Amino acid sequence: MNPHCSAVSIRPVMARWLSWCLALCLVVLAGCASGPNAHPRDPIEPFNRGVQRFNDGVDEAVLKPVATAYREVMPDLLRTGVNNFFANLRDLWSSVNAALQLRPQEAVENFMRFNVNTFLGLGGVLDVASELQIERTTLDFGQTLGRWGIPSGPYLVLPFMGPSTVRDAVGMGVEASGDLVMGMDHVPSRNSLYALRVVEARANLLRAGTMLDQAALDKYSFTRDAYLQRRDSQVRALIGRDDDAADE
């Protein structure tokens, strides 16, 4: 069978899936009334808990076993190269977001990192830029929206993707449309790289996931509060740096 014909193109599927998720969540939000004990930023908690149970089931059945086997079989040197490759792709998107946030220094640094690692680091497998002490600032489009005053909106658990907010979900949709992996024309290579990125990301979270299962009495509440606190802190840091620059 021709793999070019049988392989499923991830990019349009992801775009449709994100659009469907946002539409569904807006419908749920419109019809959901918060109870007296509801978290003020989580008005659709029953829906979100259901999605998290689904995600946990998929993780236990598929992602966690695959990620565990991947970590045990893959040599550390190769895993470092895989991490560097995908981090290099994120540097380019971080450069774009830094420019959108009017941060020329971070935009230039991340763009320099991408070029140095792409051309001198074998496509990003080697992190030459860090050896040259070129700073990395990881930024995403959800942070960019927050930097310009767009409110986060309610907490949202996305199928397969996990914790988010309405603002961050929109940001993920924009980033998916500009993802270099999803933009590849060769569908089998595109899907293979996407799967590798998912497995590598899950492998990096194995230890944290074990600690969370052992420490949290309510895994859902702990994850929600930690996610919202982290994202709020990131956006406040961006705005605070602008205030400091204005004072100077």
Results as ranks from 00 to 15, higher is better:
1 M>V: 13
2 N>Y: 12
3 P>N: 08
3 P>T: 13
6 S>H: 14
7 A>C: 12
8 V>E: 11
10 I>K: 00
11 R>P: 04
13 V>C: 12
14 M>N: 13
14 M>I: 06
19 S>T: 06
20 W>Y: 11
21 C>L: 04
21 C>S: 08
22 L>I: 14
22 L>R: 10
23 A>C: 09
24 L>I: 11
24 L>C: 10
25 C>Y: 10
26 L>P: 06
33 A>W: 14
36 P>R: 06
38 A>G: 08
40 P>F: 05
40 P>I: 05
41 R>P: 02
49 R>M: 08
52 Q>H: 13
53 R>H: 12
53 R>N: 14
53 R>F: 12
54 F>K: 07
54 F>N: 07
55 N>L: 08
59 D>H: 15
59 D>Q: 10
62 V>E: 13
63 L>I: 14
64 K>G: 06
69 A>E: 11
69 A>T: 15
71 R>K: 11
72 E>Q: 08
73 V>F: 12
74 M>G: 02
75 P>K: 02
77 L>W: 11
79 R>K: 13
79 R>F: 02
80 T>D: 15
81 G>M: 02
84 N>F: 00
84 N>A: 02
85 F>S: 00
85 F>T: 01
86 F>R: 00
88 N>D: 13
90 R>Y: 11
91 D>W: 02
94 S>L: 07
97 N>Q: 09
97 N>A: 10
100 L>F: 11
103 R>Q: 07
106 E>N: 09
107 A>F: 01
109 E>L: 06
109 E>H: 09
110 N>K: 05
113 R>T: 03
116 V>Q: 00
117 N>W: 00
118 T>I: 12
121 G>I: 01
123 G>I: 04
123 G>F: 04
123 G>C: 07
124 G>S: 10
126 L>V: 14
130 S>K: 05
132 L>P: 03
134 I>P: 00
138 T>P: 02
139 L>C: 07
140 D>C: 08
141 F>C: 02
145 L>I: 07
146 G>P: 00
148 W>P: 04
150 I>V: 08
159 P>M: 04
167 R>C: 02
169 A>I: 15
170 V>I: 12
172 M>L: 15
173 G>T: 04
173 G>N: 04
173 G>W: 01
178 G>Q: 08
179 D>L: 08
179 D>G: 04
179 D>Y: 09
180 L>C: 13
181 V>S: 04
181 V>C: 09
186 H>N: 15
191 N>L: 10
192 S>P: 04
192 S>W: 09
195 A>E: 09
197 R>Q: 11
197 R>P: 01
197 R>W: 05
200 E>N: 11
201 A>Y: 13
202 R>H: 10
204 N>M: 12
205 L>M: 09
206 L>S: 02
212 L>E: 03
212 L>R: 06
215 A>V: 09
216 A>F: 14
222 F>G: 06
225 D>C: 07
225 D>F: 03
228 L>H: 09
228 L>C: 03
228 L>T: 04
236 R>C: 15
236 R>I: 12
240 G>E: 14
241 R>L: 10
242 D>V: 07
242 D>A: 11
243 D>I: 09
244 D>T: 14
245 A>R: 08
246 A>Q: 12
248 E>N: 15
248 E>F: 15
248 E>M: 06
